[in-house]
């Protein structure tokens, strides 16, 4: 059973603006395995949400459902007012507004950093090439690696590659950014540079959902922390509520395992 400070729909009704992302009784199965069970989640515009939980809890699956890299079978997902269903026009519109950063960066190795960033704006948003390149340089400056623009991803370090991946997603000017364990594949000394970039992004008011184990980041940036276990949302609340005052046994156990590692 889920212990939330208030239900998702009630929270959405409280504010005047419609939520940026609404998950309403979302269920997903892998074969016979019920991996997302009655997920209710509402993310307001400009809100920063961190999702955490043990592996296999469905947290990655949940955010991958938001841009349809995975398909949900029951319930509704509404992104920026558009419902996510079999209608491909909806899907195209949603993918334009949602940017994603992957754990393994997934940069295109045969294109330069600049080309990685301009490809989608040119072909999906129909931006003229010159404008796309200026825009890309602007974002590369913001993630602090403009000098790498003409290099190939294979020539960059892991931290630099992930920052390029963030810039690439930002070049599509999304309203929402999804992060799927962005620092889990990085060497420890590079985690900080990526987290700093994400903090900078959060400060600009971007709506973010971030799956991560970095508790320090959660404390610093998150408006809300959502704890998932075995396919359902177990607890959610502000960082101090979740970390310092866990109410369920499962969250307590998870926290003790995470903190033991520090």
């Amino acid at each position: 059973m889920s212990v939330t400070t208030e239900t998702a729909v009630a929270s959405a009704a409280r504010t005047d603006a419609p939520p940026a992302i609404l998950l309403d009784k979302v269920n997903k199965w892998y074969g016979a395995m019920h991996v997302l069970r009655d997920i209710n989640l509402s993310v307001a515009e400009g809100e920063r949400v961190v999702v955490c939980g043990p592996s296999g809890s469905g947290k990655s699956t949940m955010i991958r459902c938001i841009n349809r890299l995975e398909q949900h079978q029951e319930g509704r997902i509404i992104v920026d007012g558009i419902e996510l269903n079999d209608d491909m026009r909806n899907l195209d519109a949603i993918r334009r507004e949602v940017g994603m950063v992957f754990q393994s960066f997934n940069l295109f190795p045969h294109l330069t950093v600049l080309e990685n960033c301009t490809l989608a704006p040119i072909w999906v948003r129909r931006t003229p090439k010159k404008e796309a390149e200026e825009q890309a340089m602007e974002y590369l400056r913001r993630v602090k690696i403009p000098e790498q623009a003409l290099k190939y991803p294979g020539q960059l370090s892991g931290g630099q590659q992930q920052r390029v991946a963030i810039a690439r997603a930002l070049c599509m000017k999304p309203k929402i950014m999804l992060f799927d364990e962005p620092t889990s594949a990085l060497d420890p000394e590079m985690i900080k540079e990526v987290l700093d970039t994400m903090v900078m992004l959060a400060d600009t008011g971007m709506t973010m959902i971030c799956v991560t184990h970095e508790m320090g980041f959660a404390q610093q940036v998150a408006d809300r922390v959502v704890f998932m276990d075995r396919g359902e949302v177990v607890e959610s609340g502000t960082p101090s509520q979740v970390f310092n005052d866990p109410k369920t046994d499962r969250l307590k156990m998870f926290l003790s395992q995470i903190l033991r590692g520090h």
Binding site: N27, W29, A32, M33, H34, V35, R37, Q73, E74, R230, G231
Partner: peptide, 8 residues
């Protein structure tokens, strides 16, 4: 509990 309900 993830094996209790079948997909629609």
């Amino acid at each position: 509990p993830r094996l209790l309900r079948a997909p629609p």
